[in-house]
Design a protein around this nucleic acid. Structure first.
Length: 802
RNA sequence: GCCGAAGUGGCGGAAUGGCAGACGCAGCAGACUCAAAAUCUGCCGUGAGCAAUCACGUACGGGUUCAAGUCCCGUCUUCGGCACCA
């Protein structure tokens, strides 16, 4: 065998797979189905980096193995192409976003094909294709029909740099998800999707799916369910009921003041009777100017103003207490009003200390002269609750009291907020809504979909946060679909997450022009058997798409309630410097460069071998060379071939063990140890100097999912018959994984002192006898008492001696 | 602050409570070569020793066990998520 010419071989097989439609999945098959899904890329102008390759390589290997195991595998790919970066490129270069997107998709496609991924290219989708976004709009209208779409004028997250309103999911940590600028707040009327209606379903659904534990936990925390009580306090001066939410109704006797959010409507309602209204207004104005960042920086330093003219009455104790406004209470959670229990809540404690308010302890424990006590303990100073010694019982008792007094009830709250569903930008799906002066908000009729994005030359957003579409009269001016009156179109577009919220459904039937996918296709493929992607999408795309899917399930459009049966996440590839790869740091590795120099198989093996698939690890060019060496040695196996379709005696257990190891490791994402076991095996083969044809065939079959090109080529060169990707995965027998003889260790007092060969499954007594006969052990035990003998079959013998 | 994950050679990382460091990289020595690259062989946690070997060693301090990287308690550090969520 000559040198392995990876470049020619790789393009040869890639062409073969393309011509023969090798990886196109059929919607009808005798075989069991397997739907493997990876997050489709956003086609940016920078092309892919090796992180994308790692993200796809995991399920790529799983898919190839599943096919060999006789499954009808669908492993699709597509492009999530609407979004700001493309639009910004268009603004900068003057090239239309359609053109930019098309170019980027061509670039991404060629990169993906060069790596030899077994994607089903007949199912490619592009979210900006009108045959696709037609259905994105269709689902939106279905939601509108069911009352899940609404407009509201409230305080929204706003990115001053991107000039768009952002959802809560898009502004995590107070930073814009796209450009990382600080978020500000402003009052604006925008579209919302009522995702909170699905809070409980999204939480409950997690019980039935196989997601990594940390993924479930992050979603649970994001949804943020808490149970507690709503309690109506009264404002003495005007009799107004002021409703609060608390998770600690057991501490109701410790309430010494109340706090309401600066935006609470009760202030406007009674502003004439508030004596220090000027002071309140000044404080409220100051709060609205603070950025998210400033607010979080000032956590310890509480600010606020006492409302002069309001006195709160505790409905349970009848006690009169002051009411403050402070920005540590937010309008967006609970009722925007709280009962403050400084003895047992650290925020209330800080506030009380600063404003000199009484602190009344109602739970025994801690030292409330120093800090709030948030632990459990016996109730004190609490009338009927006194003596109860745990939180759970105390809460129960208080809920009864509240019920008796008819001043509130048990309540549930979620941290998740409704989804601000809008972008004041051009490159997105137009929202199919018409504003009619007669009829109000009117949906575009289904048969008029898609509502096309008009071709324009100027995509600059307006400085006042207006969408570029607002400037296009032909688009804006229309007739009301209901009454025919002159009307205006909605000019906001959908956020970037819209198209990706249902793309996995379209893959099932991507060319359908009548439905987003046929019932038969959905019935056949759903749910996605295994979905892999990034951790950064767990509280964004994953939440959104589960919501859309559950909605479609509720209206009978999809057959299963959860879209993804299993979800895993890969770790990042860091730059060679150990930093996160980024253009500004200049440490981005382009997969094309690696393929040029080492070949696609090397790249594929390396990204999976570099470490634990779920952990981040830095790129190392030297380690890439190690993988290259490995594959060259695989090629070299052909020079040491001997006849024989079976495993040789001396290698039988090694092969069975390796088949078992590789099979199990692929299924549990442990690609690094799967490859390591193949490396260990090849080392042994080289040491022996020869390999049988049968052994070679097994070896290249096991390696095929990782390195499909070189293994196909060897398979062909050796005339094994047919092509490797149509063969069967290797079988192993548990029994044959064991050698006849096995080495065990002999310990004295827990320390290894000797090793010996025994027959596999040799009986206990004879093993111990052999161990005692060992000259070294004999010497060590001489003159000592054996107190205990421990025997672990096929592992060790341990003598405890004095 | 709360929640979660993790701390193992020079590096990436292996180890159902049972030989710590598999596999790979880097390094050192040798072979081949006029030479280099490539390739091949050997060594490669620390300390002592010519050696066989011995002692120590999985962030730190305790504990359980015949046996602990692995289990329990406490401490520290790093990373990730949430963050005034009442």
């Amino acid at each position: 065998m000559g040198k392995y010419e990876f470049s020619a071989v790789e393009s040869k097989w890639q062409k073969y797979w393309e011509v023969n439609k090798t990886f196109e999945a059929s919607n009808k098959s005798e075989k069991p189905k397997f739907y493997a899904l990876v997050e489709f890329p956003y086609p940016s102008g920078f092309g892919m980096h090796v992180g994308h390759i790692k993200a796809y390589s995991g399920l790529e290997v799983v898919s190839r193995k599943k096919r060999l195991q006789g499954y009808n595998v669908m492993f699709p790919i597509g492009f999530d192409a609407y979004g700001l970066p493309t639009e910004n490129t268009a603004i900068k270069t003057g090239v239309h976003p359609r053109k930019v997107t098309d170019n980027n998709i061509i670039k991404f496609t060629s990169q993906l094909k060069r790596v030899g991924f077994s994607f089903d290219w007949s199912r490619v989708i592009d979210t900006t294709d009108e045959e696709y976004y037609k259905w994105t709009q269709w689902i939106f209208l279905k939601m509108f029909e069911k009352g899940l779409v609404f407009r509201d004028k409230t305080l929204v997250n706003y990115c001053p740099s991107c000039k768009v309103v952002l959802s809560n999911e898009d502004s995590q940590g107070g930073k814009c998800d796209v450009c990382h600028s600080d978020i500000t707040h402003k009052t604006k009327e925008v579209w919302y999707l009522r995702i909170t209606e699905y809070s409980d379903k999204l939480l409950e659904g997690l019980k039935d799916v196989d997601y990594l534990p940390n993924i479930k936990l992050q979603q649970e925390n994001w949804i943020g369910k808490s149970t507690g009580a709503f309690v109506d306090f009264t404002i003495k001066e005007n009799g107004e009921k002021l409703r609060i939410y608390t998770t600690r109704p057991d501490t109701l006797y410790g309430v010494t003041f109340m706090v309401i959010a600066p935006e609470h409507p009760v202030i406007e309602k009674y502003r004439d009777s508030i004596k220090n209204i000027d002071e309140l207004d000044a404080y409220r104005k100051e709060c609205s100017k603070k950025s998210e960042f400033e607010r979080t920086q000032l956590v310890k330093d509480k600010t606020g103003v006492k409302i002069d003219g309001f006195t709160g009455i505790n409905p349970v104790t009848g006690k009169e207490i002051p009411i403050y406004i402070s920005d540590y209470v937010m309008m967006g959670y609970g009722t925007g009003a709280i009962m403050a229990v400084p003895a047992h809540d650290s925020r209330d404690y800080d506030f009380a200390k600063k404003f000199g308010i009484d602190i009344v302890q109602v739970i025994k424990g801690g030292d409330i002269s120093k800090e709030a006590y948030t632990g459990d303990g016996e109730m004190i100073n609490s009338d009927v609750l006194n003596g109860i010694d745990n939180k759970k019982d105390a809460i129960e008792k208080m809920l009864e009291v509240i019920k008796e007094k008819n001043c509130g009830e048990k309540g549930i709250q979620y941290k998740m907020k409704d989804w601000a569903f809008n972008r004041q930008r051009y490159w997105g799906e137009p929202i199919p809504i018409v504003h009619c002066p007669e009829c109000g908000i009117v949906p575009v009729p289904y048969d008029e979909l898609p509502l096309r994005l008009p071709p324009v030359d100027n995509f600059e957003p307006g400085s006042d946060g207006e969408s570029p579409l607002a400037k296009i009269d032909e688009f804006v001016n229309c007739k009301c679909p209901k009454c025919g009156h002159d009307a205006k179109r909605e000019t906001d577009t959908m956020p970037q997450w819209a198209g990706s919220s249902w793309y996995f459904l379209r893959y099932c039937d991507p060319k359908n022009t009548k439905e987003f996918a046929s019932k038969e296709a959905l019935e056949y493929w759903l749910p996605v058997d295994w979905y892999n992607g990034g951790m950064e999408h767990v509280t964004r795309h994953m939440i959104y798409s589960r919501f859309w899917h559950k909605f479609l399930y509720d209206i009978g459009e999809v057959p299963v309630s959860e879209p993804y049966a299993k979800r895993t996440a890969q770790g990042l590839i860091l730059g060679p410097d150990g930093q996160k790869m980024s253009k500004t740091l200049g440490n981005v590795v382009d997969p094309n460069d690696v393929v040029d120099v080492y070949g696609a198989d090397v790249l594929r093996v390396y990204v999976l071998f570099m470490g634990d698939y779920e952990q981040s690890a830095p790129w190392s060019e030297n380690s890439v060379k190690g993988c290259k060496r490995f594959l060259d040695r695989v090629w070299g196996l052909q020079d040491m071939l001997v006849d024989g379709d079976d495993y040789r005696e001396s290698f039988r257990s090694a092969f069975h063990k390796t088949i078992k190891k590789v099979s199990e490791d692929i299924d549990s994402l442990k690609f690094n140890t799967a490859i390591a076991s193949l490396m260990a095996l090849i080392n042994d083969i080289y040491a022996s100097g020869s390999i049988t044809r049968g052994e070679l065939r097994t070896f290249i079959t096991l390696l095929n999912p990782f390195a499909p090109h070189i293994t196909e080529e060897i398979y062909e060169q050796q005339n094994f018959g047919g092509v490797l990707n149509e063969q069967k995965w290797c079988e192993y027998s548990e029994e044959l994984c064991n050698d006849d003889k096995i080495e065990i260790v002999v310990q004295v007092n827990g320390k290894v002192k000797s090793k010996m060969m025994i027959d596999t499954n040799q009986d206990k007594d004879s093993v111990i006898a052999d161990a005692l006969a060992d000259s070294k052990i004999k010497e060590l035990l001489d003159g000592k008492n054996i107190i205990k003998q421990i025997y672990v079959p096929n592992k060790l013998v341990n003598f405890v001696a004095k």
